[in-house]
Simulated assay, not measured.
Amino acid sequence: MAQKIETTASAPLPVISAGEELEAAIRAARLADPVIDGPDGRRHVFVPRDFNLSQLPDDTRLPAIPAQRVIVDDRASLVTYANRFRDDRSIIVADFDALEIAAHLDWHPHNAMPDSFGQSGALKHSVTLKLRASEEFQRWDAMEGKVHPQEEFARFLEENSSDVGYPEAATMVEISRDFEATVGQSYKSSVRLDNGDRKLRFESETKVMNDVIIPERFTLNIPIYNGEEPDTLTALFRWRAVGGGAVALGFQWHRVEYQRRAHFAQIASTAAEETGLPWIMGRKAT
């Protein structure tokens, strides 16, 4: 007797919405490539249970360190930043050739730290003061070492007479106006006075003689570096007779380069005192 087989109608398939389809696709994509590299170098993985983001263990990974190189414009800012982040490893390096004073905050440990001496510092965190010449020094330095036409140099002296310490600013203005008055006259002679000053004699077309006395030297009270206190700089007057009876004028620095170096060292030394850090004059080898 043949066995009777009963059949039933198949159950209807579940209806899947568009949102559920998108969620399924996202889940599949996460499972296909579950490992994610973070911007700081740490690795994470999506796990199936609710797809929580879990960090992968890494026994070889070093602890995070500050990595920042800051440029500042004055010594006070250098000191403030260094005092906030310095530790027993920190050191100041002053490079005169580059006009930079840098506090390396994660330098190598010194020999007073026996547990870590010999290890290498990260050298990723520093603050650097980049010194710039002051506006006043830039103006005078641009005129130095060259001779200029009488009218041009006289105008420069008058415009910048407030920077002069000796002789008085009023005297420099008077000298500049004397030179302006002799423009167009003919240079005749020069006499060196007992005090080292120079008397230049000019003659007009009507044979009127005019004398202009210029000092052998003059001093300036101006800062060498931006944001620093003024220095007393010495300049030597220079002149030269040129064609057509005219005179060209100028000046030269007197030992100013020594003062630039000395003031640079003073800035570095003061920064070291205000931070309690050791300092060296030199530069990092590249």
Rank of each mutant, 00 (worst) to 15 (best):
T7K: 15
N52W: 06
F96A: 04
T60Y: 09
I101P: 05
D97I: 06
P12Q: 02
A103K: 01
A9Q: 12
L13M: 10
R75Q: 15
F96M: 06
D97V: 10
I26Q: 10
A29N: 02
E23H: 12
T7N: 15
D33Y: 02
A11H: 02
D97C: 07
P48G: 07
Q68L: 14
D73N: 13
I36G: 05
L105I: 02
E23W: 08
A98I: 02
G19S: 00
L78E: 00
A64S: 07
R43A: 05
D59N: 09
L53S: 04
R75F: 09
G38C: 10
L56C: 08
V45L: 08
H44F: 15
A18C: 02
A102I: 04
S90L: 05
A32C: 09
R30W: 03
D50Y: 13
Q55W: 13
I26M: 11
A24Y: 05
R30T: 04
R27E: 13
R27W: 03
G19E: 05
A32L: 13
E23M: 12
T8G: 11
Q55D: 13
A102P: 02
T7L: 15
I91P: 03
D87F: 10
L78M: 09
P57W: 11
D40E: 13
L78D: 09
A67M: 04
D106C: 05
D59K: 11
D74T: 12
R84D: 15
E100H: 07
I26H: 09
A76G: 07
I91L: 06
V15Y: 13
A25D: 12
I91W: 06
G41W: 09
H104R: 06
D40S: 12
A9L: 14
D40K: 09
A24C: 04
L105W: 08
E21R: 07
E21C: 07
E6L: 13
E6P: 00
D50C: 01
Q55G: 14
T60N: 12
V79L: 01
D73C: 00
T80W: 01
A103V: 05
D37T: 08
L53W: 02
Q55C: 10
D33P: 00
L53E: 03
P12T: 08
A18V: 12
H104Y: 14
A76P: 07
R27H: 09
N83P: 11
H108Y: 03
H104A: 01
R75V: 13
A24K: 06
F46A: 09
